[in-house]
Amino acid sequence: MYTTINETGQLNNYATEPEMYLASYPAPEQQRRYMLQAGLAALLLSAVTLITLVVS
């Protein structure tokens, strides 16, 4: 943590910034997993929406 003191004696604390890095493109296996998760999320949302329409 980086701390400075101004002329009135107040302390200012600054968090240390993490080192930046570039993200790597997901592998084909990860892409398939993401598509599966998106499909399951869409199915869940559709089911919840249909249930609320039927109940109301």
Rank of each mutant, 00 (worst) to 15 (best):
T3K: 15
T4N: 08
P28F: 00
S46K: 05
Q30R: 14
A23R: 14
A47P: 05
E17F: 04
Y21P: 01
L43Y: 12
L44S: 15
T49L: 11
V55Q: 13
Y25P: 01
A38Y: 11
A42R: 12
L36V: 01
R32N: 13
G39Q: 13
M1C: 01
Q37L: 07
I5C: 01
M20C: 00
A42T: 12
P26R: 06
V55Y: 13
A23G: 10
P18F: 03
N12F: 06
N12W: 03
Y25G: 07
V55S: 14
L40T: 08
I5K: 04
A47C: 10
L22E: 12
R32I: 05
Y21A: 03
T4R: 10
V54Y: 12
Y34K: 03
R33E: 09
Q10I: 00
A15Q: 04
A27E: 10
L22Y: 14
L40R: 05
Q10E: 01
A23C: 07
L53G: 14
V54H: 07
R33T: 03
G9E: 09
E7W: 11
Q30V: 02
I51K: 12
A38F: 03
Y14F: 03
P26Q: 05
E29T: 04
L36C: 04
R32T: 11
Q37S: 06
P28L: 00
V55M: 12
V54D: 02
V55R: 14
T49M: 11
M20I: 00
T3R: 15
A41K: 05
T8I: 03
N12D: 05
N6Q: 04
Y25K: 07
N13Q: 11
S46T: 09
A15P: 07
L36W: 01
N13D: 04
A47Y: 08
V48T: 06
Q31L: 03
S46Y: 08
N6D: 15
Y25F: 09
S24Q: 06
N6K: 11
L50I: 04
L36H: 10
V55C: 11
L36F: 07
T52F: 15
T4G: 03
L50C: 10
T52G: 15
M1Y: 02
E19D: 15
L11S: 08
T3P: 02
A47T: 09
T16C: 07
L53N: 14
E17N: 08
L43Q: 06
Q10F: 00
S56N: 13
T3W: 15
P28W: 00
Y25H: 08
